[in-house]
Amino acid sequence: MPKSFFYFEEKKIYFEQDMSVAAALLCAGVADFRQTQVLHKPRGPFCMMGACFDCLLVIDGMVNQQGCMRLAKQGIKVKRQTSNVLSEIN
């Protein structure tokens, strides 16, 4: 069976059933999910259970999506939540 994938920036990220977007990205070696709002530093998943809000991503154009709480789905478009991306959307 062909593996499912979603897009992270331009890259294809393959995932298996029951994986969250954050888990799939970490498996692919991506730990830097966003820029922090105050100091613009890189930040990635921390608690993986929906409590810390550090894994925020832009998913299909929606900002502030918790990567660890969203199940990975075929073909979704995921982006780093950087200051540039945020100002483009706003």
């Binding site: 029951d18 994986m19 888990a23 970490l26 922090t36 530093k41 930040r43 998943p45 921390f46």
Partner: peptide
């Protein structure tokens, strides 16, 4: 502790249970 790639032990366990991925 805020650097990407620094996660909690519980988070690692969630990766093992949901993604069969042990960092």
């Amino acid at each position: 502790w805020t650097n990407p790639g620094v996660i909690t032990v519980g988070a690692a366990q969630i990766l093992i249970k949901t993604a069969r991925y042990s960092p």
